[in-house]
Design a protein around this nucleic acid. Structure first.
Lengths: 238, 238
DNA sequence: GACTGTGGGTCTGATACCGTACGAAGCATG
DNA sequence: CATGCTTCGTACGGTATCAGACCCACAGTC
């Protein structure tokens, strides 16, 4: 662990920035802790800050006029939110909510816009991230259309696992059911399927990944493309 | 109809550009006809051109490793494809296919990249379009998660209707079933529901919208948000 | 007018998921 | 230890959609 590194580089986007560019924007970063449930942006309200998570997980949740909700995207320390800030959009369209406690470096909307204009490398990284996120959205749409609950749940757990350290994820069935837009009991039974196969262990409020490889195999048709594209998009940028 | 206007302004993105900027990029536009079934981009292949449709409809179709497919996004003369070109991405992740005959002005990938760098207004419009498209992706994901076939079909027909002139849409049940990732007979029965309500008329290969307002009401929970956001994003830009 | 291919309607049984409800188990509080 | 709250397990009937198959209607061709 290099002591001289600021902890903000634990965000992969900030870490990828050339050092000179990073130093330029760094003064506008502010460390914050993000408890579960915190809304980083609210639907139809102004985007005040842009967040670079260094730990934890958040979700982008979209609602319909009748109040149906579903998660459209998930993010951790590999990205930033809300992506729409980069397009000069001031109002958020979705709720962006912390799903697992974490912390982040955040930047005021105005500063973010300024650096998007003035720092080429910064803009390049942010734009790449938008593409990566949009690929995730696409495959969420496809998966929602073609996969059953078991597969969707497996995919979702893998995406969470990618974004935490260790194998332990604090999650309730209730919360998962909101994200996947299915009944809570459907989550329970699907978790049992995964548990019966030895992929995971599930106890009151906690899920432990026990055999990630097998879980990936199980979710093969649902998981992988966005993650692969992320790696492709983010390598060789500089 | 102003005779002096080039037909390319029938694409809403090109139309929105300030005249000076439009004149700058115009020499790199080439008129092409796009028959149904034509692939404007192929998954994992290089993006050769960027297309600005002036008529017709196309779809962005994503596939899973096991060959499941579903439409993730739809576009007409209100946007451009592939949006990823603006992020400096050279390979397409999806198939982009013409769904209803049309025509377009296209620009070589290299020229597009150049103007993204050199013409601020151009870049701004393209970036806005990415955001709009990404909102569409999000709501497709949500709708796929929470709505039944009837509602999803209604939503989809409305999105097609938005992108054609008149009330007539040439479509087969088979094709719609591919887009929605449902069985072909499910499309047949759902169309009967819409037809029974007097919203549409469906005959061999052709669908006619008869009462758009009622159809919108029927699809209220599934349709509208992305379209509303599109208008908000694209007004007052210059 | 017969032939052929595409597109559309309908049937069967199977299954996945739904809405709802209720009870049991874990955990904190006093 | 009693209480209350959250979280989880399970059951019921109902419905939407599935997979697959089959036949019919229409449109073009020769």
């Amino acid at each position: 662990m290099a002591v001289s590194f600021p902890s903000s580089v634990r965000n992969q986007l900030l870490a990828i920035l050339p050092e000179a560019d990073y130093r330029q924007i760094a003064p506008d970063l502010e460390y914050v802790e993000l408890p579960r449930g915190l809304l980083l942006a609210k639907a139809d309200e102004a985007i005040e800050h842009v967040y670079y998570l260094t730990s934890g997980i958040g979700s982008l949740v979209a609602s319909t006029p009748e109040g149906n909700k579903a998660e459209a995207g998930i993010f951790g320390n590999e990205g930033y939110v809300p992506t729409s800030a980069a397009m000069g959009v001031e109002l958020s369209v979705y709720d962006v909510i912390m799903q697992i406690d974490g912390d982040a470096y955040r930047m005021a909307f105005g500063a973010f816009r300024k650096w998007m204009d003035e720092n080429r490398s910064f803009g390049r990284v942010m734009i790449r991230c938008i593409e990566a996120f949009s690929i995730q959205l696409t495959y969420t749409a496809v998966s929602n259309a073609v996969h059953g609950v078991d597969e969707r749940l497996a995919r979702w757990l893998l995406m969470c696992h990618d974004r935490v350290e260790g194998n332990h994820i604090p999650l309730t069935h209730e919360f998962i059911s909101l994200m996947l837009a299915v009944r809570r009991p459907s989550v329970t039974t699907s978790l049992h399927v995964l548990e019966g196969n030895g992929f995971i262990r599930s106890v009151r409020g906690h899920i432990t990944i026990r055999n990630r490889e097998a879980l990936e195999e199980f979710a093969r048709d649902a998981y992988g493309k966005p993650e692969q594209e992320y790696r492709r998009l983010m390598t060789g940028l500089f």
